Amino acid sequence: MKIGIVGAGNIVPDFLEASKNIEDFEIVSISATENGRERMKKLSEEYGIKNIYTNYEDLLNDDIDVVYIAIPNSLHYEFAKKAIERNKHIILEKPFTTTYKEAEELVELAQEYGIMLFEAISNQYLPNYKKTKELISELGDIKIVQLNYSQYSSRYDRFKNGDIAPAFDPKKSGGALMDLNVYNIYYIVGLFGSPQKILYTANIERNIDTSGVLILDYGSFKCVAVGAKDCKAPLSMNIQGDKGYINSSDAANMYNKFTFAKNDGTEKVFELNGGKERLYHELVKFAEYYKNEDFDKFYEANEKSLIVMKILEEARKQAGLEF
């Protein structure tokens, strides 16, 4: 498949590195703003990308099958909608969109046009995550789930001085919830589905959440998801049942290693991701679904995206964040 990339930010080199090992991928074009021209030139030289554009329409006019959208969150809906209307399949970076309504419209439009719409959310496709799903039942009744993805951002110092990067910009749908905690939410939703209740309390600066604590209540058990860009702490992930637990010291988007332990003292460590690039496994799955025209897999993933978008929107509403 021929792929065009929209964006030239930090995630794009990761995508390109992973793509080198996907047999069916051919990256032919990249598009960004004029400010990104030099960065695009470097990526073009390093990865053999033939065409460089500073106009999205030019990329859509190119001979491509798939658009990889890696631009500020606030633009996801607009750019994805245009791609669908031009009959391009889509790999869309997280978070899916800004609002639930936008996400719902994209999903419906993609189905109407027969477009494969895929949110690039790494943890859902990691072998370690698949194994965790298999082991959950052996933990007995789940009681507590806790994830902490706190990563002090180099942009936070600039932010405090009034230099607002997209990840901290409410106009671009930034913030700790949308940037980091979304991985925690996906990890939880992928295992347990929709929660019964949610509660989000956040530290707000300049009308954006720089850190926050999200509680997802599943009735018989509770989940706590911490995401922070204004402070750091050891990364942690725990699923606690009455017969054992799963523990990891990784971020929810990496999940390279975890320990499965039972109350009888037995333990086993799993490292199944194979040392691959972080985005590799999700792109392998996209290529597989694409090749097999397995629309049911895309629809299934889209439903999960809608659940996450509903949680994100309600959480922002509770924190008084309006995008």
Rank of each mutant, 00 (worst) to 15 (best):
M1N: 08
K2A: 09
G4P: 00
I5M: 10
P13H: 07
D14R: 14
E17K: 10
E17R: 11
A18C: 08
K20P: 01
E23C: 02
F25C: 10
F25T: 04
I27Q: 06
I27N: 04
S31Q: 09
A32G: 14
E38T: 13
E38L: 09
E38I: 04
K41Y: 02
L43S: 03
E45S: 10
E46A: 03
I49C: 07
K50Q: 12
K50I: 08
Y53A: 09
Y53L: 02
T54Y: 00
T54K: 00
T54H: 00
N61P: 01
N73I: 11
N73W: 00
F79R: 00
F79K: 03
A80M: 06
A80N: 14
I91N: 05
E93D: 13
T98S: 15
Y100H: 09
E104S: 15
E105C: 10
E105K: 14
E105W: 13
V107S: 08
L109M: 05
A110C: 11
Q111W: 05
E112W: 13
I115W: 00
L117P: 01
F118W: 14
F118P: 00
E119R: 03
A120M: 10
A120V: 09
I121C: 12
S122E: 13
S122K: 05
L126C: 09
Y129W: 15
K130D: 06
E134N: 11
I136T: 05
E138K: 10
D141Y: 12
Q146S: 12
N148L: 13
S154K: 12
Y156I: 09
R158N: 15
F159R: 01
K160I: 14
N161Y: 02
N161C: 04
D163Q: 04
D163K: 02
D163I: 05
A165G: 09
D169Y: 01
P170W: 03
P170L: 12
D179L: 11
N181A: 14
N181Q: 15
Y183C: 03
I185M: 05
V189Q: 07
G190P: 09
F192Y: 15
P195H: 04
Q196Y: 09
Q196R: 06
N207Q: 15
N207G: 08
D209N: 08
T210I: 13
V213W: 02
S220F: 14
K222D: 01
K222A: 02
V224S: 12
G227E: 14
A228W: 01
K229A: 08
C231Q: 02
A233S: 13
P234C: 03
L235G: 08
L235V: 10
L235R: 10
S236T: 15
S236A: 10
Q240R: 13
G241N: 10
Y245F: 12
S249M: 03
A251T: 01
A251I: 00
A251G: 01
N253I: 04
N256C: 08
F258R: 07
F260N: 04
T266Q: 13
K268M: 08
N273P: 06
E288Q: 14
Y290I: 12
E293L: 10
F295W: 07
A301N: 11
L306G: 12
M309H: 08
I311N: 08
E314P: 04
E314N: 14
Q318I: 11
A319N: 07
G320N: 07
